[in-house]
Design a protein around this nucleic acid. Structure first.
Lengths: 152, 152
DNA sequence: CACTAAATGAAAACGATTTTCATTTTCAAA
DNA sequence: TTTGAAAATGAAAATCGTTTTCATTTAGTG
């Protein structure tokens, strides 16, 4: 973390603060699928004066600069994943609600030879691809609407 | 729609009402990725006395009986897709926010020979598989927590 | 027709997210 | 080191999609 992220943010016009440092570090110490509340709890173990909005804003910032992205599993809570640049999928158990990560290779195996390796019985799946469509590439220059961009 | 769905619902203990008939019919007349608000608007074009909660409850019911499932693209709005039993993916343009459907075959083509067929430049993607994990299949009997079950 | 359970509509409650605003802090420039 | 503008913070309130409540109406069985 430290100096690298600080310089990285500086080049984008953002300033470094103790809270931000703590929030960023905490986020990257955690696993995947981190919710705002979870990060908030962890951050406050170290500094209980940090506000919820600050944690939330910095989580958004982490996404904005492309270091993480939102994941939505349908339970109404937005979670955040580090951008690993290694495509992977998630196994959501519809019973116990756990989330397990698998690689695309594992996914292919999972779907083709059901329940062999992982004992996970797939019921349905979704594939979502983020990107820019032909029209938008043609138009060029509509990008600054929400600021955030999905890394990948 | 008509009599088939009515009988189908009856066997599950649900009653048919004019509102329900209208809501179900409207939903299946619409495309995919339908939000509550969109369905509400369409329903009220035909009967403006139907309440929002009724539309919402019936959309949930459609999911509950396995005719549709929730889709979450990360904009905070839950959308609903008919269950087609044909696995497919979604292309989300990060610029204009449009959603395009593609088959898994098209997806593979898309990812391997970028931007050839559709002109869509993929930036990242997510794969989500709904199912039941080994532990839960072993445990057996925790299923009636939320009622709804993903079809597929 | 009569009865019971389900369904409805309006409004309120809920809860995660997002914004507001007064204050504090960072950081580049003087 | 001091200064000033822009950014960041914390607390609280606002927002907004979702869900529940409740009194009333309706569907479907007998």
């Amino acid at each position: 973390m430290g100096i690298f992220v600080k310089e990285f943010l500086k080049t984008k016009g953002f300033k470094m603060t103790p809270q931000r440092e703590l929030i960023f570090r905490s986020f990257f110490e955690m696993g995947e699928h981190v919710s705002v509340d979870e990060l908030y709890d962890k951050v406050r173990q170290e500094d209980s004066s940090v506000g919820y909005a600050t944690v939330w804003r910095n989580l958004k910032l982490i996404c904005k600069v492309g270091l993480a992205e939102e994941v939505n599993i349908g339970d109404g809570i937005t979670r955040y994943d580090r951008v690993t640049r290694v495509p992977h999928g998630h196994l959501f158990c519809t019973s116990c609600k756990t989330v397990t990560e698998i690689t695309v290779e594992q996914l292919v195996g999972l779907l083709s030879q059901t329940a062999k390796t992982r004992g996970f019985v797939p019921e349905s799946f979704k594939i979502e691809v983020q990107g820019v469509c032909k029209e938008c590439r043609g138009a060029a220059g509509e990008k600054d609407k929400s600021g955030a961009s999905a890394g990948g």
